[in-house]
Write a protein that binds this DNA or RNA. Structure first.
Lengths: 209, 209
DNA sequence: TTGATTTAATCAAACGTTTGTTTAAGTTTT
DNA sequence: AAAACTTAAACAAACGTTTGATTAAATCAA
């Protein structure tokens, strides 16, 4: 499915509003106003508010999957380099589409069925499988220690990033970083997160109890 | 402020519904029906839906703060033991009040002002300060290495736990654990999370790049 | 090229329903 | 008797969605 300019306009306006106020907390009138289109256009293009949400996941779904395949198949990289590249690509992806990821976090919490939940489950599994391959490859080469709980390690990467994403305004205030511009602040926390996660993963992949 | 039985009944019904469907996604009629009280009782006791939410944070707010003081002041424990106890108490607290913590996660995402946001900010800072003390105490004693980014380490503990909390149904499905009862499953993931986080923290507190 | 016809896009207005809240009349408790 | 509680009914406002008219562009027939 492809969407024209106006449809994308609506989807991206809805994305921002859903991220900040939730699905139920956003009215179609809010979306229409924010997107600069007439109220009826949302039903006209998408059928319903619910289907607009599904279109949003369809629209973003393509860019969601990590480009892990290319990392995995690149034989010039060491296991450590692969993990580091994975972390940087993941952070970039999350922060580039912040609003959509907040919407995803919200959707994950409500464990209802439906196409969106399925898409999320599928995405999680794909990323998990590829991540597992990279770690296990490193274990076979003797770069990483064995006995790692890979799903939990993944939870840490995802969870720490989500935590920073959803509470960045608290972090900014607690560390008196209001003087920085939005861009500067984002650049800073991305850099810190990247360095921190790399150290963390290396630590846990090499730590012997 | 103290609340009578019926008020607590309403608060706890609202808690569960807010956690699963969000604040805006839950109607006062849903809450009334779920709590088994008349619709008007919510306005009668709390004034408004918004104030019910504030009462919820007031009601739970007391139990929120980690009992870190007692850990910190206990001189019989090593730094490692203190960190381990902290992790177990944190996990217990989160899982004991799952619904409320989901509500908190939701509220954290919307960066609006108001008494709730303030209470969250205050709670975060209190916990951060006490956690920092425990880590720094360990650093002075030479048990932990220096140069740790404590706020980010805290983000990992909170983020990993939140991630498991909010996506436990995905984890359950992906690992074919539907045969377990709800209680058994919860016990299992709490145990795994505890062991994992303890290893993780020890790894990062002792890892030398 | 002209004029007719179809198609897609846009709009203000209205639809019926659900929303949070209030009312006013009751009942129970103190 | 007073205070606290409980209720069904009603309220205006906001909600998602539909309608019917209007516009503009595209397609076709002459």
């Amino acid at each position: 499915m492809e969407y024209n300019d106006k449809q994308i306009q609506i989807i991206e306006a809805a994305e921002k509003l859903f991220a900040d106020h939730g699905f139920a907390g956003t009215s179609v009138r809010d979306i229409a106003e924010s997107a600069g289109v007439n109220l009826a256009m949302i039903s006209y293009y998408f059928g319903s508010k619910e289907k607009l949400m599904e279109a949003m996941f369809q629209h973003r779904g393509q860019h969601l999957k990590l480009q892990l395949q290319s990392i995995l198949l690149n034989s010039d990289m060491t296991s450590n380099q692969k993990v580091e590249k994975l972390i940087d690509e993941y952070i970039d992806r999350i922060f580039q589409k912040q609003s959509f990821h907040k919407v995803m976090i919200r959707e994950q919490m409500m464990n209802n069925a439906g196409p969106i939940a399925e898409q999320i489950a599928q995405l999680k599994q794909t990323n998990q499988t590829l991540f597992k391959q990279i770690i296990q490859e490193g274990q076979k080469k003797g770069d990483f220690k064995k006995g790692i709980d890979i799903p939990f390690l993944m939870m840490t990467l995802v969870g720490t990033t989500s935590q920073l994403l959803t509470t960045q305004h608290y972090y900014r205030e607690a560390n008196n970083l209001q003087s920085l511009s939005g861009e500067e602040f984002e650049k800073l926390i991305k850099k810190k997160l990247s360095a921190y996660l790399k150290t963390l993963v290396k630590a846990i992949l090499s730590y012997e109890a």
